[in-house]
Amino acid sequence: MSTDTTDDPIRIAFVCVQNAGRSQMATAFAERERDRRGLADRVEILTGGTRPADGVHEEVIAVMDDVGIDLADRTPREITPDELRSCDTVATMGCSTLEFGGVDAAVDVRDWALADPDGRDLEAVREIRDGIEDRVAALFDEFSDASGRSH
């Protein structure tokens, strides 16, 4: 399988340990950006954790609801090394999520070094959310710029 054709989708993963907070917010913002930019056929989004929680943190659900995104029905899931190796970009949330290793050098791994929202007050979680939203938009700007040059 070739990974250098312009027809191949860009595959992005958002990963943290529990997949119950930061990576869920990043995934939701990425899905929104993908839709807003008309990139549904160009960008594939994965999310997961190395030790998934039972559910998305309540404070995360609350602050995402503030911006019109419903995470109440989302379920944290485990992400596999094979899934990570299949990605173009993996954004980790600052919690040593790649401890199982095995991601090859061709994968652009970015550690966003974000504070854990679990158990924090809503104002702190809103700040984390806003930082994630900005990072996701910037990431999509990079992909949009790259795809604009390739056409």
Rank of each mutant, 00 (worst) to 15 (best):
S2V: 13
T5M: 10
T5L: 13
T5A: 12
T6R: 06
T6Y: 01
T6C: 09
D8P: 13
I10K: 06
I10W: 11
R11P: 02
I12T: 04
I12K: 03
A13Q: 04
V17P: 07
Q18R: 08
Q18Y: 08
N19C: 05
N19E: 11
R22F: 05
S23V: 01
Q24A: 03
M25Q: 13
A26V: 06
A26I: 05
A28D: 04
E31K: 15
R32K: 13
R32Y: 05
R34C: 10
D35R: 11
R36V: 01
R36H: 07
R36M: 06
R36F: 02
G38F: 02
G38Y: 06
L39F: 04
L39M: 11
R42M: 04
V43G: 03
V43F: 01
I45M: 01
T47A: 06
T50S: 12
R51S: 14
R51H: 10
P52C: 06
P52A: 07
A53R: 02
A53H: 02
D54Q: 09
D54N: 07
G55I: 09
G55E: 11
E59I: 02
E59W: 09
E59Q: 09
V60F: 06
I61T: 13
A62P: 13
A62W: 13
V63Y: 09
V63D: 08
M64R: 04
D66I: 08
G68P: 10
I69K: 10
I69W: 05
I69Y: 08
L71A: 00
L71F: 02
A72I: 14
R74A: 06
T75G: 10
P76N: 11
R77F: 13
R77E: 15
E78D: 11
I79G: 03
T80L: 05
P81I: 00
D82T: 08
E83S: 07
L84H: 10
T89N: 04
T89I: 15
T89E: 06
V90F: 00
V90H: 00
T92H: 02
T92L: 05
S96N: 13
L98K: 09
L98N: 08
F100D: 11
F100L: 10
G102W: 03
D104Q: 02
A105F: 06
A105N: 10
V107A: 02
V107P: 00
V107W: 07
V109H: 08
V109T: 14
V109Q: 12
R110G: 00
R110Q: 05
R110N: 01
D111N: 08
W112V: 10
A113P: 15
A115L: 13
D116I: 08
P117I: 14
P117R: 06
P117W: 12
D118L: 15
G119Y: 14
G119T: 09
L122P: 15
E123K: 14
A124F: 12
A124D: 15
V125C: 07
V125R: 09
V125T: 14
R126S: 10
I128G: 03
R129G: 11
R129A: 04
R129K: 15
D130G: 07
G131Y: 06
I132V: 10
R135D: 15
A137L: 07
A137E: 00
A138L: 01
L139K: 01
S144D: 03
S144G: 08
A146D: 08
G148S: 05
S150F: 01
S150G: 08
